[in-house]
């Protein structure tokens, strides 16, 4: 046999094997996953995200949050994820059926965000944290996302959404810091991150 033919067959074999393992088998395993509907209440899980939160997911993607934050709770027996209070149960494939693309992430330079909306449910906290991370979490290596906020002159009584900032983070006298639409969407997305529901394959331990 010609050497080129051998080489070609080798390439083909490698790619076909990878395609079977990475595309075909997962498609059979997870391709047909449907939301779980609770027969008693008629609720569907995982819950659908609001439009604003879905926009916020794009802000999350655009700002590369995934480079430092994962969104997956690993099983209790091998890892400390649940002991750290990051989630009440392990994550399963069905949690991500509405995520295209999913944002599981592989890096944990920052903490896991699978349940960010449950653990940290205060909208104002998220805005202040995004504007000045170290003010909320001393020693944090998270960069500030100040370009998602606008510094403006206080008009009249001031904006009700103005951030409550202290010391060095505070704007000059007579000015206030307000979130842009991107910041609002991002925080809506973070507050929507919630895996605190039971699925047949991953029940909450209270049930």
């Amino acid at each position: 046999m010609n050497k080129l033919t051998t080489l070609f067959c080798g390439f083909l074999f490698t790619f076909v094997l990878a395609w079977i393992g990475l595309v075909l088998v997962p498609q059979f395993q997870f391709g047909q996953l449907q939301p779980f509907v609770n027969e008693d209440t008629g609720e569907s899980f995982p819950p659908m995200r609001s439009g604003l939160a879905e926009t916020g997911k794009q802000v999350y993607q655009a700002n590369g949050c995934i480079y430092c934050h994962s969104q997956q709770i690993r099983p209790e027996h091998q890892t400390a994820d649940m002991a750290r209070g990051w989630g009440a149960r392990r994550s399963v494939a069905r949690d991500y059926i509405y995520d295209r693309p999913h944002l599981l992430g592989t890096m944990r330079t920052g903490p896991d965000l699978s349940n960010a909306g449950v653990r940290l449910s205060n909208e104002a906290w998220h805005h202040e944290h995004l504007y000045a991370p170290q003010s909320k979490s001393a020693g944090s290596t998270m960069p500030p996302f100040r370009y998602l906020y606008k510094v403006q002159k206080i008009q009249g009584a001031g904006s009700p959404d103005a951030l409550k900032l202290e010391a060095d983070d505070a704007p000059p006298e007579g000015y206030e810091v307000v979130p842009t639409p991107d910041a609002r969407a991002l925080v809506a997305y973070l507050l929507s991150l919630n895996q605190n529901y039971s699925l047949p394959e991953a029940k909450l331990s209270t049930e």
Partner: peptide, 10 residues
């Protein structure tokens, strides 16, 4: 180790 706080890891 869950007693190793996340801020310690950071």
């Amino acid at each position: 180790n869950p007693t190793n706080t996340f801020s310690n890891i950071v």
